[in-house]
Design a protein around this nucleic acid. Structure first.
Lengths: 203, 203, 203, 203
DNA sequence: TATGAATGAGGATTCATTCAT
DNA sequence: GATGAATGAATCCTCATTCAT
């Protein structure tokens, strides 16, 4: 049971995203997802343990791609400041490019039950680590301040990006999400950069 | 129908908070809330249109108190920088002082259906405005930067506080939430201050 | 929950008997029972924990009446031999008088799942005890043989009655069940009597 | 289709017995039986019409062997009284020697649906005839009473043996089934013998 | 006002059977 | 013959809401 590969596996995941985005989490019945994926209801259970497993897999697969793409991009720029910019850009652009996924991750999947939510939070940890790695690099470079805990900084970075994305979805994409990259980058850089004064401050 | 006052009205709201905090959103049945409030199931429908109305009212009432208390406090300090500090402090301390409410607002109520979520978002707007007013005052004072849209800044402030609060609840209160006030204030101030002021900072 | 009294409780039990007798165990859906009892599906769950509980209760209630009536009758006759006769007569006549119950207890409920079957077996023990008490009395009277274990004798008595009843139902009541009382009584008496008495028997 | 011979035919039947004995009738899925028999799910349908056919065949084949062995044994003893003893002995010993089959025939297969049960009852008729033949022989010999219908006597004999076997399985084989042969034989003989013989018995 | 018994719509999941390979 | 991936029908139970008292 529960094969995690194959065309149908992907088809079901993609169908789930479309159905949830269109009808909402609470109206995404297994039958609807099956129909959208052009498979029988029972077929879903050849690839997934249960409905929760489908939802968790949606998040894991998509967030996995999201993180993978982001990490690959970050690897291409050397400095922490540039990495921060790419992080912001990738975060917002990937959501901007896939409205369905944006709706699903920012809104719908957050309504899910405790089991799904716990799994989601687990997946998010990888992303947290990615962010914290950038911050740590900046500190090591001597560019980012060291007087604030890395986790606090990560909360600011993630919180800012997440709130921005959620607002964008709640406003039905009525503002240009990518236009936020630059101002957010400027804000976060200002927050993170060491200043001459702060150096003295810690002395 | 649906009178919005009286002892029972309050009793039901408070019971809802306790039940949701204890059993989780998905296990907060009307019957359970009624029992906790020492009223009959049907009585709830004398004070609320339906279950959604109870949940929305929970958020509206509690968030109303939250905003009212915050606004009252902000009125007592003159400058934007100090107001920002009080905003952060009030936000985190009010959650820190009421674990049930923290669980309910940061975790459980976010699992609710679209109707409730929309209403919640509506209530949040007042809080958004409060934050933006502080930012605008800072700009007017010539202390906060003006090269970034007020809404973007608000997203950073709210996103940071919200993510911090959520992490705190997810980690079951294992870290000291109030200890975050100071570092967050420093981060946000650095993000918001005009360059010149940052230089003057230590003077 | 699960009130075990009231008109509806009885109505549901009786409806279950009729539905099972008519449609068979595997076609006795909760909805069908509810409709037959003139209540809503959900009402059943105000009186019973689940479907199994309905089935178990059917057996327990009906078998309870069965045992009670039998015991009451046995109390009215003094000797073990007469008691044995009444036991046989009551067993067969009660089934003969209630075709639906006969079908349900002899055929349909035996198809039930392990949970239900276990509960049924539990209830049957009381009946076993009733039979064994008659046998023991006969032994105490010096009328019944003592060279065979009471339980073995009980198995013969119950086995004979049960097989007779089952055959009668399987043959759709095509033979006169009550006509079996006398021959079975004679057979069992011959089996049980002490040798001396058997000698006198023919006199 | 549905050839009733070959290694796989037997393998499937034997696998069904093991699976039903181990997991119970309600957990004996076709897929599980196929796996136990080391064949593919679909292969079962090359040898059997459907699942019911498998179950019926299990009973028919095994009961067939049971009856055949019993008949062969009865042929080796001349008198009805001895035949009765061998019947009892064979009935109980064959079950005692094959726990899986005992569980399957006494408990699990009785939970099956009407189609299977009807077929089972059909197969049982052969066994009924075997029993009745012994009884008739005893009557012809002038040894068994003739004042009770042969079928009634058969119900007593079969009922007694069946109830004994079922009790033994329900009690998980906690008592010695073969130790019941002698007392049951004594009981049944007492029930069946004509009065004169019974008189001689004590001499 | 207050009660709480009654309602009934709605959905995830299993598993016997098929059929293209 | 043999496979096993795919099918899709069928059902118990929960719980928000009503309404007679």
């Amino acid at each position: 049971m529960a094969k995690r590969t194959g065309d149908k596996y992907q088809a079901i995941i993609d169908a789930a995203v479309r159905v949830i985005a269109k009808h909402g989490y609470h109206n995404a019945q297994v039958a609807k997802i099956a129909r959208e994926a052009n498979v029988a209801d029972g077929t879903i259970y050849l690839y997934f343990r249960n409905k929760d497993d489908v939802l968790i897999s949606v998040f894991r697969e998509k967030m996995g791609e999201f993180i993978h793409a982001t990490r690959a991009r970050l690897d291409q720029v050397p400095t922490a400041e540039e990495k921060l910019r790419e992080l912001i850009r990738m975060h917002l652009s990937q959501l901007a490019q896939n409205w369905d996924m944006a709706v699903v991750t920012q809104i719908e999947l957050r309504q899910s039950n405790p089991v799904v939510r716990t799994e989601i939070r687990e997946t998010l940890r990888q992303y947290y680590r990615l962010i914290e790695d950038v911050v740590r690099q900046g500190m090591a470079e001597g560019v980012f301040r060291r007087d604030v805990d890395v986790r606090t900084i990560r909360m600011m970075i993630f919180g800012t990006l997440d709130e921005t994305a959620t607002s964008w979805v709640m406003k039905k994409g009525k503002f240009d999400l990518l236009a936020q990259v630059d101002p957010i980058h400027r804000l976060l850089l200002s927050a993170l950069r060491k200043s001459e004064q702060r150096e003295e401050e810690t002395a």
